[in-house]
Amino acid sequence: MTETTGLPPTRGPLVYRQSIWTRVTHWVWVVCLFFLLLTGLQIFNAHPALYVGQQSGFEFDNAVLRMAPVNTPDGPRGQTTIFGQTFDTTGVFGMSGTADKPAYQGFPGAVTIPSFRDLATGRVLHFFFGWIFVAALFIWFLASFINGHLRRDIIPRGGDVTGLGRDVVDHARFRFHHRRVYSPLQKLSYFTVFFILFPLIILTGLTMSPGMNASWPWLLDVFGGRQTARTIHFGSWSSWCCSSSSTC
């Protein structure tokens, strides 16, 4: 290790890019989303199929994704079916584990909490961190509205829309301009996460609650049924993963 890997000597003004509210809620979300993601996969494993519509087709087919172990002449294999296309995913989806101790389940135990099949515990943890996630989001929105973070950094303005094209081209050429303000793409990413993706995750989650369905029946109509909401809920975290990596 040479000295070049260390920090440059502190020169010039120290810039605080984020307020304490943004920093604290950020790390709360990091912990929450870690648990929400991995307990979510545990919950998915209890019925590793996703459907479109109000109900799950047992005597008709409305599945868009299904992971299942199947018996073949070569022994059991794990299969994943997406939109009618079936793939052999032995070792990862549908069937994982070792040869002498195979696990016949959707996602492997390496990415679920707990690592063994335990829907009850998955649900307990998922709802606990769901509450904290929503509380932190509420605090962040309130603080960001008051301290101007939303207006200044998140909500895209006219200049961001017109500058979007050039920003995309710059990114594609790996020409990054690190300024004190967010670039149009950064703004758009954060705006999408906070105003579309997070609300979508929360509302599709609530749509799966039979209690909430009674209170807010419009949820079922907005998302096209409980099973569609479950599919969107599953899909929205994968888009969150994509967008969080793109804003880094």
Binding site: I43, H47, F58
Partner: peptide, 8 residues
Amino acid sequence: DCVEGWSC
């Protein structure tokens, strides 16, 4: 709605 996730 079953706790497993399916509906009928």
